[in-house]
Design a protein around this nucleic acid. Structure first.
Lengths: 111, 111
DNA sequence: TTTATATTTAACCATATGGTTAAATATATC
DNA sequence: GATATATTTAACCATATGGTTAAATATAAA
């Protein structure tokens, strides 16, 4: 059984709760981009994008690679897996419990 | 392909970003509880728990059933599925892209 | 060395968040 | 009706969030 670190999950889910950040992650699919390239489609300032990237980085949803004056930003899909595992675990857990509850109720009805 | 509603995802991920709320969801596994029962293990006030429940309700992660002066709160696992689907979709999407990228690079190396 | 480009940091602002205590509301019970 | 119980709402507070513009920093290019 996986042990989830509270802080880690706080950061991941918080990062995912903002539509701009989800959009950035989406745009990053599989290829590296510079900060400028990431910012380009958005109407907000570069400073704002920079902050969003910091939040994504804190959550370890992205990695950065510095090369001269540019930075290359890329996804870290491993982290998304953490969130996925947390959710999947509880989803399963709850579904099992709910089913157990249903069975119990049926039993009560039929006897 | 599923279409995810922005607001819905905002609410779900925001709700999940707080450890108290995740803990409440965990405690609710499969059985209904009253607000008082939910609050019991926590050191914070009932008012604070009430607010957390409102956030979870807004995200449709829980449902409520009123019965006299009590309320029964229960999970809505359907919503967790929404979050799970979003994450799984992008995880897959990214992994595919990353693999494509890797293949491309290998090709470049070997020829 | 100057200048242009890429990115972050600082200072600021309005609103949201997560908590508190006290008052309000709704139902149950005496 | 009066009182106890369950829960929410209101008012408040400190800190966080998501944005802005302007200044700072770092590298590249002339």
């Amino acid at each position: 059984m996986v042990k989830y670190k509270t802080q880690e999950l706080n950061h991941i889910f918080h990062a995912l709760s903002d539509p701009t950040r989800r959009s950035i992650l989406r745009d990053l699919g599989g290829r590296e981009k510079t900060v400028g390239q990431i910012a380009q489609p958005y109407r907000m300032s570069l400073a704002a994008i920079s902050k969003h990237l910091k939040v994504l980085e804190m959550a370890r949803l992205i990695d950065r690679r510095k090369e001269g004056s540019h930075q290359f930003v890329r996804l870290n899909p491993e982290t998304l897996k953490t969130a996925n595992e947390w959710i999947s675990y509880y989803e399963q857990f709850w579904n099992d419990r709910l089913e157990a509850l249903r069975n119990l109720l049926e039993e009560g009805d039929s006897t």
